[in-house]
Amino acid sequence: MISLPVTYSLCLVLFFIGLYGIVTKKNAVKIIISIIIMENSVNLFLLLVGYRKDGIAPIMTEGMSVEKFVSGAVDPLTQAMVLTSIVIGLSVVALMVAIAIRIYERFNTFDVSEIKDLKG
């Protein structure tokens, strides 16, 4: 029998909303928004995979024993990867917005279906 874990499924629904936007929308700004939503859901999925029930943040405080910390903290590796991924996502979005501005200056529209003149 098929059984779906609720949290993972909701996260993937978010991913599918972004995918739907990329495939069907025509406005360049809407496409950028869909890509941001997909990025967010992927980052969230990585964090969900590294979570542990009733876990504490991976930051030691003074007087905490190492054994208790190791048995209680959530996964620090996925958090570090997600931190890198978020900042790279910002730079990618900056590049996409620059291209969208250029398209608007040239063709005077954000609608990607009206761009027919691709010659130099």
């Binding site: 900042v87 900056a94 501005i101």
Partner: peptide, 19 residues
């Protein structure tokens, strides 16, 4: 990172506006 993020803002909004 501070210089980069401010440059992103400056490039995309200030220079874009000048044109």
């Amino acid at each position: 990172v501070g210089a980069s993020v401010f440059m992103v803002f400056a490039v995309l909004s200030v220079f874009g506006k000048e044109k």
